[in-house]
Computed example of a mutant assay.
Amino acid sequence: MNPSAPAIALRGHHLLCVLTFCGHGYTPAFTANMAHIVAVLGSGATVRIVAGADALCAPLTPDCGVEVHCARADVAARDRRALAVAGAALGRRLKAGDSLRFDAATLATLRAAFADGRLRAACTACPWADFCTATAAAGFAGARLRAEPDGDGPDKTVHEPTYSLEHDTPDADS
């Protein structure tokens, strides 16, 4: 474990997105970035909850070829709903500035709450909702986030990925 590694900044609804991430995203750059971040989170990195755009949003720029929705009011509302339902599942209030880790217990609790529907209020109008429902129904088979067993693990240093502008949307090959 690298104690000096920076925390990964994630907005509220992305706490749920990482639970079902199977390697698909809005663009190849977004997908590569998310794959990297999910791997780092699975190795024990700390999440710092933020309001607004986060580490996963980084590849979504105005010239990437997809709608950049990071600052939309409906996405901020999705973040608030996600923090409320995830916090209820974890038995604590979650808000911007808080930290958490996807250890085995946290991951199991959040995935159970996602699978039984307690977290799904945050997924209203999300274009990925059907994909995530199918992933949860399959027992999260293919989902890449795996909690590291207790103890020291690999280096959690966050490295900047290289971005391209090709598309990989929910309608692309699954």
Rank of each mutant, 00 (worst) to 15 (best):
C22D: 15
G151Q: 00
S164N: 13
F102A: 04
T31Y: 08
K95P: 00
A172D: 15
F140C: 02
L15Q: 08
L90D: 05
D130M: 15
A104Y: 10
L100Q: 05
G87N: 06
A96P: 15
A125Q: 13
R81P: 01
T133P: 00
M1G: 14
H24F: 02
C132P: 00
H24A: 15
P3V: 07
T133S: 12
R120K: 12
A112N: 09
T162N: 06
G52F: 01
D103W: 11
T169E: 14
C64M: 07
A77D: 15
G151S: 04
A73Y: 03
L10S: 10
P161T: 07
A9Y: 01
D63A: 14
L110R: 07
R118Q: 14
G97C: 05
L10D: 10
C17P: 13
A104S: 13
A84Y: 00
F102T: 01
E148S: 14
P170T: 06
G65M: 09
V40T: 15
T20R: 06
A115S: 03
L94G: 05
L19R: 07
A71N: 10
A125P: 00
E160Q: 15
D63Y: 04
T61H: 00
N2E: 12
V68K: 02
A113C: 05
F114A: 02
L16S: 02
V68N: 15
T31E: 13
F131M: 10
A108I: 12
D116T: 10
A7N: 01
R144H: 11
A172E: 10
F102H: 05
A108C: 11
R80F: 00
G23K: 06
H36Y: 09
T169V: 13
L10E: 13
L60N: 06
A136L: 01
A53R: 15
H167I: 13
A137Q: 14
A115W: 03
T20W: 02
H36K: 08
A143W: 09
F114K: 03
G97L: 09
A82S: 09
A32S: 15
T133F: 12
R118A: 15
T162C: 08
A112H: 06
H167D: 06
A39F: 04
A58D: 09
